[in-house]
Nucleic acid binder design. Structure first.
Lengths: 109, 109
DNA sequence: TGGCACTTTGGTTAAATTGCCAAATAGGGG
DNA sequence: CCCCTATTTGGCAATTTAACCAAAGTGCCA
């Protein structure tokens, strides 16, 4: 088997950050909304029952992972996905997570 | 925009657990190895420079997320992916993570 | 310019994660 | 049956993450 050396590990660390960014229900929701197009922070504030600062920090995590980018227009800030817009990626991830979730539910609940 | 209510959140929580399980370099490495077929824990012990117990716990995280299953044969334990074996899922995730990693690398390092 | 509305940042606290060591458990072979 | 190997579990300390509140920007508009 291949060995997990320092170089290989560094490569995985970047990918891992992406997955970790997706590893929170609120952020998963945000990403799914963004898959439908650009959104204003204020929309998330209205849709998510949490403090504004909490939501802002979730967006920041997604940004640091390279998943989203933001743009200020007027007094609002808009976020959008930073990945190819063909939707394939996320439908795939969603399908994957769904399948795994089903598998999980079948044995552990 | 859709609202993130309790029911929706529960759905996302299960998916999030899957992503979080993938959100660690060592576990990402393990999963990628398993994509090539079943592996014995002892192989991971040889390939990864960490305590046996640490590796065992990483495998446990993957199992709790529903990503892998284990089988004891003789004195060894073998792990395998618990997802459709067509490899599409992981090649897709890998591609996604790779693209995102590239995007990330370009701006944040 | 003064004051809102929108968003982020800083501080704090609680909870979850990670990794090592030591100890327990389980199978196989003498 | 005892020991040895393979793996998991329990206990801890260090680090990271998540959530809230309060406070600090930033741009609009009266």
């Amino acid at each position: 088997m291949e060995r997990l050396d320092t170089t290989t590990r560094r490569k995985y660390e970047i990918k891992a950050r992406v997955f970790r960014a997706l590893g929170h229900p609120t952020r998963l929701f945000i990403v799914e909304q963004l898959a439908g197009g650009e959104r204003c922070v204020c929309e998330f504030n209205a849709a998510i029952d949490a403090d504004f600062s909490t939501i802002s920090k979730h967006l920041s995590v997604l940004k640091n992972a390279g998943l989203v980018e933001d743009e200020k227009r007027g007094s609002n800030v808009f976020y959008r996905l930073r990945i190819p817009a063909d939707g394939r990626l996320f439908s795939c991830m969603d399908e994957a997570a769904g399948a795994l979730a089903a598998a999980f539910g079948a044995t552990h609940e």
